[in-house]
């Protein structure tokens, strides 16, 4: 795995680089802003770029804009956006433009090397990744019409993992279930929520997200 890191805070940039290298991930370079990042991606062609959402000059959504630019110039490069924002809106903006190989994690996950490495690996394989905290918040959100209430606890666990971008295989590994059981769960959940069961993994993630946000 080769990654590049873009963050305007040196402490985070270099700290994350060291932590990743200690964990066996090759860090091909670091950048302090979006322009540096784009140059770095062009020269290094990493598997994944880890990008802070707020970077100079405006400190708003530079990371999301950079992700869009990376998609058009280097479609093979995955992007993991690290963000201070818990709102699902920013994540949806990132995933909706191009879910393949995109991830949105809260900033503090950067020091959780296990989660970070896992996310990078999944993004490298083309999956999409959404922070569990955001998903949990969406699932807990109070609603009037509550088909979610009809789900069993186990089903709700599975739903959260779907929303986090896990594949059936990933889910079966985490929950220690057989792939067949997971498939059955997924089918029931989608039926209960009134969503079409689609074999396309990315469309499934987006459909579940859209349902949870509505």
């Amino acid at each position: 795995m080769r990654v590049v890191i873009a963050d305007d805070a040196m402490l985070i940039r270099e700290g994350a680089a060291r932590l990743l290298e200690d964990a066996g991930v090759e860090v091909a370079g670091t950048a302090g802003d979006a322009q540096d990042l784009l140059r770095l991606v062009a020269t290094e062609q990493p598997d994944v770029a880890i990008v802070d959402i707020r970077m100079p000059p405006t400190h708003t959504d530079e990371g999301l804009v950079a992700a869009e630019q990376i998609r058009s110039r280097h479609p093979g490069v995955g992007v993991l956006v690290l963000s201070q924002y818990l709102e699902s809106r920013y994540a949806t903006r990132l995933l909706e433009q191009h879910p393949q190989g995109r991830g949105y994690l809260l900033k503090e996950r950067v020091s959780d090397i296990g989660a970070l490495k896992d996310a990078i690996a999944r993004i490298g394989e083309g999956e999409c990744v959404l922070d569990p905290t955001i998903v949990a918040r969406l699932i807990k959100r109070p609603r009037h019409r509550r088909p979610i209430d009809e789900l069993t606890d186990r089903e709700r666990e599975v739903l959260a993992l779907i929303a986090e971008g896990r594949s059936n295989q990933g889910i079966s590994q985490i929950l220690v279930l057989s792939p067949k059981t997971v498939e059955a769960h997924v089918g029931r959940i989608l039926a209960k929520l009134g969503l079409d069961d689609t074999p396309d993994y990315h469309r499934r993630v987006l459909a579940v997200l859209a349902f949870l946000r509505s």
Binding site: A9, L11, A16, R18, L19, H59, E108, S111
Partner: peptide
């Protein structure tokens, strides 16, 4: 809001990283 996000919060995240780096493997 910006100061909190770009100042204090960044520092805390940095601190958390630093803790991870000094922790024994």
């Amino acid at each position: 809001e910006r100061d909190l996000h770009d100042g204090a919060q960044q520092r805390l995240v940095g601190l958390s990283l630093a803790l991870r780096l000094i922790a024994p493997k």
